Computed example of a mutant assay.
Amino acid sequence: MPTPDASKVDLSYAIGLEPEAAIQYFESKGYAISFNWQDVWAEAHARSFTVSGVTKLDVLTDIHDALKEALKNGETLADFQKRLQPLLEAKGWWGKGRIIDKATGEIEGKRLNPRRLETIFRTNMQSAYSAGRFQAQQANVEFRPMWEYVAILDNRTRPAHRSLHGRVFRYDDPFWRNFYPPNGWNCRCRVRTRSMSDMERLGLAASSSEGRLETVDQVVDRKGNTQPAIVFNDPATGKRFMADAGFGLNPGLAAWQPDLGRYPPALAKQFTQAQASR
């Protein structure tokens, strides 16, 4: 099946809020097949669509298309599973355990079940919505340049995410390149924009990540394998904040790079150099 064509996006409502950018982000993703999700890392993961353990293009496409329809139609997790489960059952990909090639004995993938579908659904919906929200906020930075991290403060909130609740960074602070939510599986955090008058009226103080971002080796699996990751050394808590493995890149930034082929070579080179120096 051909890669989704971003020029044929069907603009519709998604998640009840700002759907257009979310749909464009999701449909513009290519396909990446990987038995281990760690193989599709950071920016590549944000630019492509992959499902851990799914190594068959037709199955990956079924999942992608079901998520796309859910975005377009504002569907629930139950709707998503209802559409997808019969297709997975027919291809032998529904249930528990791994799929083994009878001829070679090689592992072909891991079957999907309701729990895995929920993680796939929530993570992809949140990433698509966040990318759309990021673009809307970027378009309004002249009037609302200060961005506030907002966590859901209940008993399911990760302590590290809770510690960032209410913290404000300028929209162009490098903090947002790596920690614009979601910052992990089923992360429910979001970003609220503030004007300078809001800051003064509410008595909010701005934070800065200058000199506090560091590259470390992050363990990404049970075997102890590592990948480079960015951490924020938080002066307020004295602790490091790090996104879950595979989430340390703003999906909005990865998905919305300009088509450099449409620009003069000198300008395209200037943009590439600026990105590489960030």
Score class of each variant (00 low, 15 high):
Pro4Arg: 08
Ala6Ile: 11
Asp10Asn: 12
Ser12Met: 09
Tyr13Arg: 12
Ala21Glu: 15
Gln24Leu: 15
Ala32Met: 14
Asp39Met: 09
Trp41Ser: 04
Thr50Ile: 00
Ser52Asn: 10
Val54Gly: 01
Val54Ile: 13
Leu60Arg: 01
Leu60Glu: 06
Asp62Trp: 06
Ala66Thr: 01
Leu67Asp: 01
Thr76Tyr: 06
Lys96Met: 05
Ile99Glu: 01
Ile99Pro: 05
Ile100Gln: 04
Lys102Ala: 13
Ala103Gln: 13
Arg115Asn: 07
Arg116Asn: 00
Glu118Val: 07
Met125His: 15
Tyr129Arg: 12
Ser130Ile: 04
Arg133His: 12
Gln137Tyr: 04
Val150Gln: 08
Val150Gly: 01
Ala151Trp: 00
Leu153Gln: 10
Leu153Tyr: 02
Asn155Ser: 07
Thr157Ser: 14
Ala160Cys: 09
Ala160Asp: 10
Arg162Met: 07
Arg167Gln: 10
Arg170His: 06
Arg170Leu: 14
Tyr180Asn: 01
Gly184Arg: 07
Trp185Gly: 09
Arg190Trp: 11
Met199Val: 14
Met199Lys: 03
Met199Ala: 09
Met199Pro: 10
Leu202Val: 04
Ala205Gln: 13
Ser208Pro: 14
Leu213Thr: 05
Thr215Leu: 09
Gln218Thr: 04
Asp221Ala: 15
Arg222Met: 15
Arg222Lys: 12
Pro228Arg: 07
Pro228Ala: 08
Asp234Gly: 13
Pro235Ile: 09
Ala236Asn: 14
Arg240Met: 15
Phe241Ile: 15
Ala243Ser: 08
Trp256Leu: 11
Pro264Thr: 11
Leu267Ala: 09
Gln270Trp: 11
Gln275Lys: 11
Ala276Ile: 06
